[in-house]
Design a protein around this nucleic acid. Structure first.
Lengths: 226, 226
DNA sequence: TACTATACGGAACGATGGTTCCGTTTGTCA
DNA sequence: TGACAAACGGAACCATCGTTCCGTATAGTA
């Protein structure tokens, strides 16, 4: 359910005179804010309160808002920076000699990246913070790059021809957005492996072999109280 | 991120004298509240504001709280009512002649039910509303019933033996919690089919045939070892 | 019909979180 | 070193949402 926060500006505060002189303390604080935001976005996703970012950066909230007109504007740059390498990786994978293997590797890396930087996974779906313009660009570029990778892998006969980019996007989103109590890192890797199993043609199971023989871990149902 | 709402009572208001006389208007309002809650929980999940429930029921918020001490208490009964048939279905499926087919059918129905009553999917994971006691019971019973169904299907050689109940729970949760923009009903059915494909041994693809634009999917035989 | 326990509505409270405002501090430059 | 624009911090504002409170309305009864 969106909270209705709307993006009001594309750029950051002061972008008109983007090379204008910044006082030394302002430069330092801006860097601290970006560091703090990166740290907290990785773990808590797009839901981190601005107050927490300000606290970790050791500045006041006012200072955050002097640098970035909205929370969305602050997040946009950091998300784009995280996205670019992924788009490049998808494009490179599409040109690889073995697009089937490249596809599986890419999907694994994408899942890792979503898990290691939760805000990126949040940005791919409706997350309460309206990143409209940024989100379109972010997800659009990634989707089109992965589309081409998928097509190449299908042309090579390694991926089922009836699988669509929508299937891949939905499955990746599902795996990336599930409660970490149900989807801890080990479980996530298993799910990625199972998904890949269902996409590949005639592959050996990709499920981690080391986890197969152990007795099934008791399922934790998510009660986090005592 | 949990909002820290805590459950304070197990039952509903007035449950001690559960058969005590209720005024006619109170009975009518109680029924309206339950109807409204059911309608809104189905679409919006556990995030519906109490105000909206009261508005749809054409009562004040005070009336909601006179019937149910907390939001969690209101939701608990409705969730349990939705859950019971699922638990029964899972138990019946575990005793079916063909547990493999029964497993696939059950997973499909479970996914439909989660989609048709979003609050139930929310209740299976951390959702901001603390249903501790209720949630443990809800998810615990369902999980154990599905566990047995999975084991039976594995004993019959229809489901991969290396698949765990954790895998099934995580995949179902993933599919059920994904942004409906990415996971519309048709896409959800495709994802369920893909997941089942990855769990079953030597099955034809379960992807809906009507949606396949390409040549039919090749039979996937047991060439993938396990 | 009059009385009263029961129930009602919705304003108000407290907590959370995004955003704004303004009095104060400080880096920079002459 | 003094002046001042730039930047700072954080209180305050607004909106949302769960929950409580209390003055008012009414169903049931005599």
């Amino acid at each position: 359910m969106s909270t209705g926060i709307t993006e009001r500006e594309q750029g950051e505060a002061g972008s008109p005179g983007s090379d204008r002189h910044l006082r030394a303390d302002a430069q330092r604080n801006r860097a601290r804010i970006l560091d703090a935001a990166t740290t907290l976005m990785a773990v808590h996703g797009i839901d981190v309160p601005i107050d927490e970012i300000a606290q970790l950066a050791q500045v006041g909230v006012g200072t955050v808002y002097r640098n970035f007109p909205t929370k969305a504007a602050l997040f946009k740059g950091l998300l784009m920076a995280r996205l670019e390498p992924l788009v490049s990786a998808a494009r490179a994978a599409a040109d690889a000699d073995e697009p089937g293997e490249a596809f599986v590797d890419f999907v694994r890396n994408l899942s890792d990246e979503f898990a290691n930087f939760k805000a990126l996974a949040d940005a791919m779906v409706d997350s309460g913070v309206d990143l409209d313009a940024a989100k379109s660009q972010i997800s659009g570029e990634l989707i089109s790059a992965v589309s081409r990778l998928l097509e190449r892998a299908q042309e090579c006969g390694r991926i089922r021809p009836d699988v669509t980019i929508g299937d891949v996007a939905a499955m990746m989103a599902g795996i990336s957005h599930t409660d970490p109590i149900l989807m801890d890192p080990s479980q996530r890797k298993r799910c990625v492996a199972l998904v890949c199993d269902s996409l590949l043609i005639g592959a050996r199971s990709l499920l981690p072999q080391t986890e197969i023989l152990q007795p099934p871990a008791p399922l934790r149902t998510g009660s986090r109280s005592s």
